[in-house]
């Protein structure tokens, strides 16, 4: 069983609009896989289907050898898929630490144990020093980090990251890239990320899927994908290829 996640012929329509159009791909266990494409390409919708927010109109999603496309979001998380939201959704009135403690409680029912685990995760994402602040006080880049920390605290096998580098400075992007690389190497965490920051995609992903108008237009190693004419035309623009 090499593939942790397998998406087969998935489509999703919002009234007239075909947001995801017959998309198939597989994510190997222990790999980092990126989804790129212009705004409105259907990337977030694809994530929401995997995470159980929407049922697909057609197609199937298999995780760790079991079909999950009819399951509720909380059940999918319990099976081992953690996700972030592109439009961040912290628990605003709670402290940064308590946000993460709630994630950690999925696998650790004892609050003290959950708190210890939460602090390790916070340290990993450079949020330890801000753990007592209310989540509502964080800047947007920190809220993105908090999204990652909270999802990570549920100890997923597969982590879905929706544009978590957006708004980060280059140095911060590099920190996030190395944090994710460490998680991947140390724990074999499989990561599926949507990302516009090509520098992060190139550094992290072994494979890239390119979506346009909901459909797959390319898939392969990042270096190869960014040279495909269809990708350059629809998304990257000629200057991005060097």
């Amino acid at each position: 069983m090499m593939d942790l996640l397998s998406v087969e012929g998935v489509s999703k329509r919002f009234r007239g609009l075909l947001a995801v159009d017959n998309v198939s791909f597989r994510v190997a266990r222990g790999s980092i896989f990126a989804v790129i494409g212009p705004n409105g390409a259907g990337k977030t919708t694809l994530f929401n289907i995997i995470a159980g927010m929407f049922a697909p109109d057609r197609g199937s999603v298999d995780f760790a050898g079991e079909r999950i496309d009819a399951l509720a979001p909380d059940e999918i998380c319990r099976r081992g898929i953690g996700r972030t939201f592109q439009l961040v959704r912290p628990f605003p009135a709670l402290s940064v630490e308590d946000n993460v403690v709630i994630g950690a409680m999925l696998r650790r029912h004892d609050p003290a144990a959950a708190r210890r685990h939460a602090r390790e995760v916070l340290a990993r994402l450079d949020l330890f020093g801000k753990r007592h602040q209310p989540a509502s006080a964080l800047t947007l880049p920190d809220r993105k980090r908090l999204e990652v920390a909270r999802a990570l605290a549920t100890e997923p096998k597969l982590l879905l990251l929706d544009e978590v580098m957006a708004g980060l400075r280059p140095a911060e992007t590099d920190r996030m890239v190395s944090a994710l690389t460490e998680l991947n190497r140390e724990f074999g965490l499989t990561i599926l990320l949507i990302e516009h920051v090509m520098r992060a995609v190139m550094a992290l992903a072994a494979r890239v899927l390119v979506l346009h108008h909901g459909a797959r237009i390319a898939e392969g190693a990042p270096a190869a994908v960014v040279r495909e004419p269809a990708v350059i035309q629809s998304y990257l623009g000629a200057e991005a290829v060097d």
């Binding site: 995470a51 909380d74 959704r89 709630i102 999802a151």
Partner: peptide
Amino acid sequence: EDEVAARSLGID
């Protein structure tokens, strides 16, 4: 605080 986020963290 946020029911959608709560569900995404595995909370029934």
